[in-house]
Write a protein that binds this DNA or RNA. Structure first.
Lengths: 357, 357
DNA sequence: TATCAATACGGAAACGTTTGCGTTAAAAAT
DNA sequence: ATTTTTAACGCAAACGTTTCCGTATTGATA
């Protein structure tokens, strides 16, 4: 087991000082041609690679970004991570992930863990429990320690930072208007409780679309599900809720669902109840998942472009990290600084498949 | 922006030395009761947290494990990561992920990047390109640098390390035997090229099951797909290949597929061709994904238990990391050491759903 | 009263880098 | 021949910790 080679070892072997080795490897003109070549050759021979940890300590930056998400076994989040990873790698950064598992305390713990030097900045999506408690102190404390944050998807006004969101509102409007245009008169909505901002926004989009299309929004057509109880596990509960929605609205001819599971389950229930899709009933889901593509009929969706979200978030964060560098020497007016937080909106796109006409 | 507080600052404020502060915070009896309390109180007041990077440099361990996988937008891999993350967090470790994107060079780059001090050990699954090239030098070099590796799922004999695999062979035997027991006489196999070890093992399991059941293995019933061309994108190619399989085997009454996509696509094609599932044709897939649960009919699967794999891998790695600690003082016989590499097998389980009788 | 042990703390090295500054010797300029 | 410049390198500090070792003060023992 050959241990990692350090500057000191090279210096000792070649009978020069550590600083000479360091400079030689940086190809500094301060070191004589001969010594420089000799050191470089020897270093290459030993396969020397500088120790990242020592560099981090010295430079006070880790070239690592922390990603904090509620759940990783979830198509949307994993596409976001992929996006983050791609640009992070391109720009020389590593990615360290933490899962909050939708829990407030795990979110806080994970942040504290990583904030103590392990990472230069965060990209995160807020856990449901945190949204419910509306306790955002850990975000603000992190920021005030000089660690920038970029939030995506589940964001919140109370925290001042860059944000990347999808146009939940507009996307939903588009989707519901499409259903209207396709002839739907009684469009059901399957959504989550309002404390999840994306659920709320999508619900508002649904209402706005109906309003603009001058279609009466029947309260009975709206099904609000509490996502807290793990519906993934209790599919039957979900199914019976949806079945109830159909039964109390016999004339229903369109469904807009705010996520993939709701949408495909709606199709499943509808088929069981004898609806023909898309002839009797058209369905659109807000998602980007794999279920919709392989469902039968395949599901028309409002695509969220998770990977783009991740890429944009990573670019925003790294831009800010590297901007902070420059700012330290160019002594910039304290006021003109931190103000410029962007909220970047990733456009949604309707991908038409078999569940709509 | 209040910067991070260090021992030095506390020391200066309280007019003691850095070493005293350090000891006081460790609650060392060497420091007088009074000073100790005073320092601890002040540190708590300032919300002092030790700098991880400095600790890493000093202790020569990062408490971070590197996870290298081919792809993250993949249900199996994300469940494995979840498993890793759970036990890593429990045991005080962080997880840093790298994606090889099935590419050899990205795998090598990522390893080198992380091996220079960023992590204490690796958990990884080999990329397809690496398996094809059969070039494993980067793994062996990493190990010989004293950085332990745990491989999961896609493993290889040429590298000596702990491994966590699923019993691909036995699982496949079980699945195919189940089809036989259910009355299938002509069981198709949809699999990948042999260089992916899991594909090969599952193919062997299929053959063995037929052999033991004294069913003739018709070569025509085996469809080997080259996974290199991104089939996810070209669903139509996949579909036509499968359709061809059905058409040249009109008497086919069972299908065993080595992954989820193949299985659900087979069902889709079969339905299109007029097969009733499970009456005319029974299907079993080797997977753990979300498609199978929501397909219609829902798919009977051989479950891989990705999360368990991740948990076991993390435990193995951390065990070895912390074992290495002790070994350094107890000067153990060089020979008796590294030998004890485990290959841990996670049992598969057949989850019966609607695609089988 | 002189010696000793214990108590309570400070100094400094070490982990592996980078970098400002100082030093030496030779070459160039006066 | 003396001074100045320049090339080529070494020393040491710094990043934030921990820990070994040293030391001053106190109280107890001989």
């Amino acid at each position: 087991m050959k241990k990692k080679v350090t500057l000191k070892q090279i210096a000792r072997e070649l009978d020069v000082s550590v600083s000479t080795v360091s400079r030689a490897l940086a190809d500094s003109k301060e070191i004589g041609e001969n010594t420089r070549r000799r050191i470089q050759a020897f270093a290459k021979f030993l396969n020397y690679k500088p120790n990242n940890i020592a560099l981090s300590l010295k430079n006070k930056k880790t070239k690592t970004i922390g990603v904090l998400i509620p759940e990783i076994v979830h198509h949307f989040f994993s596409t976001v991570i992929r996006g983050i990873e791609i640009v992070a790698n391109e720009r020389g950064y590593n990615v360290i992930v933490g899962l909050s598992n939708e829990s407030f305390s795990k979110e806080v713990l994970n942040m504290e863990m990583l904030a103590n030097g392990s990472i230069d900045g965060f990209i995160l999506s807020i856990s449901k429990e945190t949204l419910l408690k509306q306790d955002y102190h850990h975000f603000n404390e992190t920021i005030s320690q000089g660690i920038p944050i970029v939030m995506f998807d589940r964001v919140v006004n109370e925290v001042e930072c860059d944000k990347v969101i999808v146009d939940d509102f507009k996307g939903s409007v588009k989707a519901v208007k499409k259903l209207v245009d396709n002839g739907c008169k009684h469009i059901g909505l399957i959504t989550t409780m309002d404390y999840v901002s994306v659920g709320r926004l999508r619900t508002q989009g649904y209402l706005r679309a109906l309003e603009e299309s001058q279609v009466y929004a029947e309260p009975n057509l709206i099904l609000k599900l509490d996502d807290m109880v793990s519906l993934e596990e209790n599919l039957d509960i979900l199914e019976s809720e949806i079945e109830h929605l159909f039964k109390r609205n016999p004339k229903i001819d369109g469904v807009f669902a705010v996520n993939e599971l709701y949408a495909v389950t709606a199709m499943k229930v509808a088929k069981k109840l004898g609806y023909a899709i898309p002839d009797d009933l058209q369905v659109i889901g807000f998602t980007d998942g794999v279920l919709s593509k392989h469902a039968s009929p395949s599901l028309t969706i409002v695509s969220q472009h998770g990977q783009k979200i991740g890429e944009k978030a990573a670019d925003l964060l790294i831009d800010r990290l590297e901007m902070d560098d420059d700012e330290s020497d160019a002594n910039i007016n304290e006021n003109t600084r931190e103000e410029a937080f962007e909220t970047y909106v990733i456009e949604t796109e309707i991908i038409e498949r078999e569940s709509t006409k």
